[in-house]
Design a protein around this nucleic acid. Sequence first.
DNA 1: TCTATAGTTCGGGAAAATGGAACTATTGAA
DNA 2: TTCAATAGTTCCATTTTCCCGAACTATAGA
Lengths: 117, 117
Amino acid sequence: MRPLFHPSIHDVRLEAILHALSDPVRARIFTQIAAADCPKTCSAFSSVDDRTIPKSSLSQHFKVLREAGLIHSERQGVEMHNTSRCAEVEGRFPGLLPAIMGAHAVEHGLEVTPPTA
Amino acid sequence: MRPLFHPSIHDVRLEAILHALSDPVRARIFTQIAAADCPKTCSAFSSVDDRTIPKSSLSQHFKVLREAGLIHSERQGVEMHNTSRCAEVEGRFPGLLPAIMGAHAVEHGLEVTPPTA
DNA sequence: TCTATAGTTCGGGAAAATGGAACTATTGAA
DNA sequence: TTCAATAGTTCCATTTTCCCGAACTATAGA
């Protein structure tokens, strides 16, 4: 099994990020990893929005997110620990991920209502 | 020739926008339309970054941008006038397009240095 | 009416995504 | 140790999507 490839942050391409997040399953996975306060395994997403995702497809989705520079994956025993690289991406493309995740929230009706006192 | 379809702004999907802009040719076309102060024709983009784009492909690219809700296309005589729908999209997904276009600028080394006077 | 121009549509080949089956790596128990 | 179980990966056939040449449509002007 070849080692996992993680691009250096300055090799991260906007095109790859947009492509990775243009898939609804990957967008879901990424937003949940980004929101989580501890690493998430791949199998944590064996179903997304009541749809079962075959594990070969899941593996591909994680690879796309990883190679786009959005997540970091590290083997921990038998499972994989995935964490987001939001902070790094924010350094390279300021405001990009917050805007996309905000839009994602708008679309799913989860927008945090601003404190309009 | 069937009439051109333009989605209503509240039917615009984040997924479609990200997909549309994840292609380098479309990203170029869109940023130039968005930056222009007058409508752009399709044939204005018959070559992008020194690469010739066949007109059947161009037509498809414009269709993807249009159906994603990013541009408005209107026949004007023999040609097509394309304008951006940035303002509408901004209303639906605040900050999204500025962030993507900012990232695009970062990647192409065209970043506008903020007036840190 | 004829010609030129600007785009669209069609259709076939190329490339990418999907998912089942087989494989690999690690753990823990017998 | 070996064996079984678990978590992911890789392979490969099928399906879907993308690309672009060729044919077509629509409009303008001579």
